[in-house]
Amino acid sequence: MHQRWESLLFLHWRWDAAEIQRTLPPGLFVDTFQGDAWVAIVPFYMRGIRWRFTPAMPFVSNFLELNVRTYVHDAQGRPGVWFYSLDCNLPPAVWTARTFFHLPYQHARMRATHREGWIDYSCQRRGAAKEARFRYHIASEFTAAQTDAVDFFLAERYLLFANTPRGIRCGQVHHTPYPLASVKVEDYSVEPLLQAGFGDPQRPPDHLIGSPGVDVWVYPLTA
């Protein structure tokens, strides 16, 4: 599939590696940077979603997504992303991701507005009492992460892992390096972390970064 991910906000908290490991399925292992494990909330726009050799369609190709994630590697040492949840406001996209990629997509009511550089983003998962809200501004100066920096460890992940009926499988994700930028965040919610089973960190994110977006190819799951 071809996708474009736009106006991404990455909110990261350092987390106890042993606690994260207990949440992972057999075959996956928590990944760390200089001894630190991380959990993240990532709201963004999905644009121009289409299968290979098919055109994008306005009513099913553009939607919102918010994921809760951590960083892992498998027994072969391949680094990637493990998703605890992926909230989405387009039912066909939820069905497609659950069916073909075995990812924990969740139905949600979501809204986003972009005005004078500020993004107001909200997400309320189906059945949830509380709405998660985010207000952020991505700077207009971008840079690529250095390979030895924490930004690279957190952002440049080219495999996603999924727990399928046949066991752990991975899907390759291909894109150019993220153009990364500093962000101002006026409002954020930890509600998605709580829904994933984590406690309230009771502090602001330990790491914030944003990106205007990248074009992405997502490939089928393999062993």
Rank of each mutant, 00 (worst) to 15 (best):
Q146T: 11
Y105N: 01
A129S: 12
S85I: 06
E116Q: 15
V183R: 01
T32H: 03
T70E: 10
W38D: 05
V94W: 10
S182L: 14
E65S: 08
V190C: 10
A108I: 09
P204Y: 08
H102L: 05
R78F: 06
I119M: 12
F29I: 02
A132H: 12
D151P: 07
Y158N: 04
V72M: 07
F83E: 04
F153R: 05
L11D: 00
W38C: 05
L103I: 08
E141Y: 11
V60A: 05
W118C: 12
V150W: 06
A196D: 08
R115P: 02
G167W: 11
R47M: 09
V72N: 07
G127Y: 02
Y71A: 03
P201L: 09
Q195L: 14
G117E: 12
P192E: 03
V185I: 07
L208K: 10
T32C: 09
V68D: 04
F142V: 13
G210I: 14
Q21D: 10
R115Q: 15
D36T: 05
D74P: 12
Q146C: 08
A112H: 06
F33Y: 14
P204N: 08
A145F: 04
T176Y: 06
H137Y: 15
A75E: 15
F101Q: 07
T147E: 12
Y105C: 03
D215L: 09
W82D: 05
I209V: 15
R203F: 09
W38Y: 14
T70V: 13
H207R: 13
R157D: 00
A108H: 03
P205V: 13
W5P: 00
E19C: 08
D187Q: 13
A144S: 09
V183L: 03
T222M: 12
E186T: 12
R126H: 14
A149I: 01
A40D: 00
V81M: 07
V190I: 14
K130R: 13
H73M: 05
G48E: 12
S182F: 11
F161M: 00
P179R: 00
I138P: 06
L221M: 08
V81Q: 00
W5S: 00
A40G: 13
T147C: 00
D31S: 10
G27P: 09
P26H: 11
R157E: 00
Q195E: 12
E186Y: 10
D215G: 07
P192H: 02
Q106I: 06
P55G: 01
W5I: 04
W217E: 10
L193S: 03
D31C: 03
P179C: 10
P165G: 07
